[in-house]
Design a protein around this nucleic acid. Structure first.
Length: 713
DNA sequence: CCGACTGTAAACAGAT
DNA sequence: TATCTGTTTACAGTCG
């Protein structure tokens, strides 16, 4: 993080972190000609100095503690004292220069022997200086702003020579002001040096205010100040032992670690104000608005939220309540961790996005006239499938994940890293292959056999946009789709027309050849006894008999080790997987339910569906033929009767304890609203006729850690 | 090769 | 009468 911002700072032309060479970046600018680099750096010396004083405040406490320890017989071994600062991890030092280790603290204590009284005196002195400095700085800024405006006018007028006198007088006034500041600062530095608190770094140029204001815009000056300060603070904290810089306790990152005496509208996250000259001369309110730790009259220090009437009050509060102490340090560390985590997450998500973009881009450029696939496996689907499987793999053993990938390798085209890989499995049945035209339903097609059991709701949810817009046949059977449609409905029941609507709404593919697929839908509804027609006053609705639905699948769930492979491929039907699945889902809890909570049929639905599916299978395992739906002939029952003898299933059911779909034998529900059949018919339909689907939410596709993707290759 | 499953087509009947 | 809904049959293909 800090490395990034540091880089940015460098890119923005800020001095590099070797103080000696700072300012060289500007030598090419005619505007900045003649400006001495040393000016800024020397000002910075005082800034760092101020910070040093704040260190002392904490050091005083630490030292007292140390003395107490020693007095009580707890000797501090020399070896510990000599622990070099180099042991501080660079990353930590880079990111939070204010965070010091106890060893560093001890070292500082050893190097700088001062009595608490001395320190207190110094501190008071320093605070007075700070106040003065702050006031002068503000004044300076205003002056510089005027100067800058005048300079701009000159430049625009193209006659810089004549009117330079006035700006120069302003500059002189400014120099006087700055001289005062400088004197105070130098005085303070001398005091510090006398007392051994500060060692002026040899590389630092001395003050030369004469050239300070020449040709510099105030914004540039201020920015340089901040950048140099920030950079130097970092530098100090890393390179200098004795001068270990603790920075201000109130600010977490070097980018914001500019002293309070400088404008708080400082470079944030490495932003350079060189490019935003309009932000110069910030008022107090603006400063408050720009301070990352202050907003809405509240201190935004993590866990603080103290009310501060104004910015000054806030600054006071910051100094008092969030001084450098263990607590602040710890909080800073926590914040660091938070930021790190967020950045990690961001990086991962970016990577994913990139992979997805690459993926989709490749797909869009693929030749459309491939001889085979109608049920073109959407690339994104492949990606999602891989990830879906990985979700399980994450909580499964490596062996399992391996078997999973072996079980259906073609169904998991792992393309992000190999964008040219054909996405459509050429062989084996995981994907669906049909003749060229997507529009024609050729005789040869492949669906995901239910045994693959890529959770349909998951797939649909994750690829909703894809299916909605791409003329791609979903690789699921009509029965699965119908079931999904019904289960997604709030009442778990749909009229035929509503099922039609769901098909057309969810899949672009089903916006054509309506006669064909509608016939198929009707055929399936009638054919499969898992679909139960329930009559009511207004007509009839279709529901799903989960038990029957599960019966269609001759899944043998048993303790047989060979089942493991089967389970892996079936993903969600093996009860032994349920634990893993639930764990995986738990892992995805937040994102999943975030999406799901917005009325979007998502993995949350999938979870529920899978649970239902699990229970369906389990219940079947528990039941026997007598369990079949009433109203069905024994013949029909026999037709789908598959033995399911799975003790594991039973336990899974007991464990999950999830209710089956209202199986009280399908109470007749009077449909509350008329069928919205009219909106749908052949031809292009509006994609956004969803009551409970919001397309914009589809971007919230959630993926689990895709670390296991290598297994898919 | 067989059987289960699936998709497609079509005939048919009843309801609207 | 036309259309919708629902049932049933037939057939072909896939897959284990």
């Amino acid at each position: 993080m800090m490395q990034e911002s540091g880089t940015e700072v460098a890119n923005n032309g800020s001095p590099n972190q070797n103080g000696a060479s700072s300012g060289n970046h500007y030598s090419d600018s005619s505007v900045r000609d003649g400006r001495s680099n040393g000016d800024i750096s020397s000002i910075e010396v005082t800034t760092a100095d101020i910070i040093h004083l704040q260190q002392q405040q904490a050091l005083q406490v630490a030292r007292q503690l140390l003395l107490q320890q020693q007095a009580s017989g707890l000797k501090s071994p020399k070896g510990n004292d000599k622990q070099p600062t180099l042991q501080v991890p660079v990353s930590v030092a880079m990111m939070t220069p204010q965070v010091i280790t106890p060893q560093q603290m001890q070292q500082i204590l050893q190097q700088q022997v001062l009595t608490p009284q001395q320190l207190q005196a110094l501190l008071q002195q320093q605070q007075a200086i700070m106040l003065q400095q702050q006031q002068l700085q503000e004044f300076y800024k205003k002056q510089q702003e005027q100067l800058h405006l005048q300079l701009l006018q000159q430049q625009h007028a193209g006659k810089p020579t004549k009117e330079q006198q006035q700006p120069l007088s302003h500059q002189l006034a400014l120099q006087q002001q700055l001289l005062q500041v400088q004197q105070l600062q130098q005085q303070h530095i001398m005091t510090l040096q006398r007392q051994g608190l500060l060692t002026v770094q040899p590389g630092q140029p001395t003050l030369s205010l004469q050239t300070l204001a020449q040709g510099m815009t105030p914004t540039e000056l201020q920015q340089l100040w901040k950048e140099v300060t920030a950079a130097h603070i970092m530098e100090e904290s890393i390179t200098k032992n004795g001068g270990l810089d603790l920075s201000t306790s109130s600010i977490c990152s070097p980018s914001t670690a500019t002293p309070k005496t400088s404008t708080p509208g400082s470079l944030m996250n490495g932003q350079s104000m060189l490019h935003t000259p309009k932000r110069e001369g910030l008022s107090h309110e603006e400063q408050a608005g720009n301070h990352p730790l202050y907003g809405h009259g509240v201190c935004k220090w993590p866990g603080c939220e103290a009310c501060c009437d104004d910015f000054g009050h806030f600054l006071k509060h910051l100094n008092n309540e969030h001084a450098l102490d263990d607590r602040s340090t710890a909080q800073c560390r926590v914040q660091m961790q938070v930021v790190q985590q967020l950045e990690l997450q961001l990086a991962k998500d970016k990577e994913r996005l990139q992979a997805m973009m690459t993926h989709l881009h490749v797909k869009s450029t693929e030749p459309k006239h491939t001889p085979q696939p109608m049920f073109l496996m959407p690339k994104i689907k492949g990606l999602c499938l891989a990830i879906t499987k990985n979700k399980l793999n994450l909580v499964s053993s490596v062996t399992l994940s391996k078997t999973a990938s072996e079980a259906s390798p073609q169904s998991l085209p792992h393309t992000p890293t190999t964008p040219t890989t054909p996405i459509t499995p050429v062989t084996q049945g995981a994907s669906v292959i049909t003749p060229t035209s997507m529009h024609s339903m050729g005789p040869i097609r492949r669906r995901y056999p239910d045994k693959y059991n890529v959770p349909i709701s998951s797939d649909i949810a994750q690829n909703q946009e894809f299916y909605k817009n791409a003329d791609v046949r979903p690789p699921f059977t009509y029965a699965s789709l119908i079931r999904q449609a019904i289960l997604e409905s709030p009442e778990k029941q749909l009229t035929l027309n509503e099922i039609y609507n769901w098909f057309t709404r969810m899949f672009a593919y089903f916006r054509r050849n309506a006669a064909t697929w509608k016939n198929a839908v009707r055929h399936n509804l009638s054919l499969h006894k898992c679909f139960v027609r329930v009559e009511n006053v207004k007509g009839a609705v279709w529901t799903v008999d989960e038990i029957e639905f599960q019966k269609r699948r001759p899944q043998k769930i048993s303790g047989n080790p060979s089942i493991i492979k089967n389970l892996q491929t079936s993903l969600g039907y093996g009860s032994p997987l349920s634990a893993a699945l639930q764990a995986s889902m738990a892992e995805n809890n937040i994102p999943l339910y975030t999406t799901a909570s917005m009325g979007h049929p998502t993995i949350a639905t999938m979870v529920s569906n899978i649970h239902e599916e699990l229970n369906g299978a389990v219940e079947h395992a528990n039941s026997n033929e007598s369990d079949s739906s009433p109203g069905r002939s024994p013949l029909q029952t026999m037709r789908y009767g598959f033995p399911l003898d799975s003790p594991a299933s039973i336990s899974a059911q007991l464990k999950s304890g999830i209710h089956l779909m209202s199986n009280p034998r399908y109470p007749i529900h009077v449909k509350e609203e008329p069928v919205d059949a009219e909106e749908m018919e052949e031809g292009p339909l509006s994609l956004v006729t969803t009551e409970n689907h919001s397309p914009e939410l589809d971007n919230h596709k959630e993926y689990e850690e895709d670390q296991g993707n290598e297994d898919m290759e």
